[in-house]
């Protein structure tokens, strides 16, 4: 079974993001970029399935400017077999990514597509679900456990109130939650091997997709600065402030 994995290049989770002066987005110039952490979990899960002999090939896809090939190199260093870069300078939105992934899925015929549940930059949490709808495949989002049994996938999901287990017929879409696994560190020998693995570059037009944005970003702004706390002398004063000033009780 072939696995298709999508990996997004995002601002590193350690970076304190700054809003651009003109309010059109966040500053990415000279900022450390990394693979979206949920996508790292997707790569790790796919590589583990390959190591168990369940999967035969792991194909990683990234979309965006040429620098996304660095993200693909990281996926290859973690154990993916080959990469596909859908190269575009257009700022991609979930629907465009889902359409591009559908086109790639039709070409590659994977048994499963694993995606991060969301990207930490825009927190859309939409691509996996849209892709499942476009392909007409079953989906299991927020996976915390994944097992393949023949033509079926057993997926445990973290939901309000506990864990839910779904049984899906393959091919299917799975999106990863934080506790699915702990991604490995790329070792030096695997980084060296990854340099010899192929990355195919392809344009959205070649996949028959117009990636132009459908949503307009009106404004990006800093959240309001947190106000300093106040000390109260007694419980009575606290209750008074909560009822009179804050009006929360």
């Amino acid at each position: 079974m072939k696995l298709l994995i999508s990996v997004k290049r995002v601002v590193d989770y350690n970076v304190k993001v700054r809003v651009k002066a003109d309010g059109t987005g966040v500053e990415t110039n000279g900022v450390k970029m990394s693979m979206n952490p949920f996508d790292e979990i997707a790569v790790e899960e796919a590589v583990r399935l390959k190591e168990k002999g369940v999967a035969s090939e792991v194909v990683a896809v990234s979309m965006g400017p040429p620098a996304c090939s660095e993200t693909l190199r990281t996926a290859l260093a973690m154990g993916a077999d080959r990469g596909i870069l859908v190269e575009t300078e257009v700022a991609l939105q979930p629907l465009a990514v889902a359409k591009l992934l559908r086109a790639l899925a039709e070409r590659e015929q994977p048994g499963m597509i694993i995606l991060g549940k969301q990207a930490i930059d825009d927190d859309m949490n939409a691509t996996g679900q849209m892709l499942a709808a476009l392909l007409g495949w079953p989906q299991a989002t927020f996976a915390s456990k994944l097992a393949i049994e023949g033509e079926r996938a057993m997926v445990t999901r973290e939901v309000d109130g506990g864990l839910e287990t779904l049984e899906l017929r393959l091919p299917a879409i799975v999106t990863t939650d934080l506790r699915l696994n702990e991604p490995r560190y790329a070792s030096l020998p695997n980084i060296m091997k990854a340099r010899k693995k192929p990355i195919e570059t392809i344009a959205p037009a070649a996949l028959g997709v117009d990636p132009a944005p459908r949503l307009e970003i009106v404004k990006v702004a800093e959240p309001p600065k947190r106000q300093g706390g106040r000390k109260v002398a007694s419980v009575a004063e606290l209750v008074e402030k909560l009822t009179q000033e804050a009006k929360v009780i």
Partner: peptide
């Protein structure tokens, strides 16, 4: 080079 940048990033991640 991108190769050296990748090594640097991998080391910093490990560290």
């Amino acid at each position: 080079t991108p190769d050296l940048e990748q090594l640097r990033a991998a080391i910093l991640t490990l560290c």
